[in-house]
Amino acid sequence: MKYNYTVLLSAATMSVIYSILYVHQFVIAALITMAFYFLFPYLIFALPLQYYMNKKPKRFHPLYFIYYLAASFIANCIIFGILQPSGESLFSNSAFYIFAVLTAVVYWVWDSVLLQKQRPATEA
């Protein structure tokens, strides 16, 4: 169940960030709509990776962030590739890089806060 919270909170957080960056005001319709747009890539790309990494949980582990960053670049490459006008280069779009990093950071933070528990040190 906590996996669902991570996905939902990440999508909601990215929706708020998107609204601040591009809408410049608090509009409920924009927040809800963008939350759905961010929800599905998180479900497809980040959630399976999260299941795999929870076999050895570590809070705020840099390697986990790199994994999320790689998955985020792939997801954003697909999404921006579909939505980008045909004459423009994907890699010249600064929004591509901004959202690739932001989506990875947001998911990594929520994953670390909600799921990645430190195992107690065993006494020898």
Rank of each mutant, 00 (worst) to 15 (best):
K2A: 09
K2Q: 10
K2F: 11
K2L: 14
Y3P: 02
Y3W: 14
N4E: 03
Y5P: 07
Y5T: 14
Y5I: 14
T6H: 01
T6C: 07
L8I: 12
S10C: 03
A11W: 03
S15H: 00
V16P: 04
V16I: 15
I17Y: 10
Y18P: 06
S19N: 11
S19Y: 04
A29Y: 15
A30Q: 13
I32W: 03
I32E: 00
A35T: 13
F36H: 00
F38W: 10
F38E: 09
L39S: 09
F40H: 13
P41V: 01
P41F: 00
Y42Q: 14
F45S: 00
A46L: 12
L47Y: 11
L47P: 07
P48N: 08
P48S: 14
L49A: 14
Q50N: 11
Y51W: 09
Y51R: 08
M53R: 07
M53S: 05
K56N: 11
K56T: 13
K58F: 02
K58M: 11
H61W: 13
H61E: 15
P62W: 15
F65P: 00
F65L: 11
Y67R: 05
Y67E: 04
Y68W: 15
L69I: 14
A70L: 15
S72C: 04
F73I: 05
F73C: 09
I74Q: 00
A75Y: 00
A75K: 06
N76A: 11
C77L: 14
C77K: 02
C77S: 15
I79T: 11
F80E: 07
G81D: 00
Q84E: 09
Q84K: 03
S86V: 13
G87A: 03
E88N: 07
E88A: 06
S89C: 03
L90T: 04
F91T: 04
S94G: 07
A95I: 12
A95T: 14
A95Q: 10
F96N: 05
A100K: 02
A100T: 06
A100P: 09
V101I: 05
V101F: 12
V101L: 08
L102D: 04
T103I: 08
A104Q: 01
A104F: 08
Y107A: 03
W108R: 06
W108V: 00
S112A: 10
S112L: 08
V113Y: 14
V113R: 05
V113F: 14
L115A: 01
L115V: 05
K117S: 13
Q118P: 05
R119F: 10
P120D: 12
E123P: 00
E123C: 02
E123K: 06
A124E: 13
A124D: 08
A124S: 10
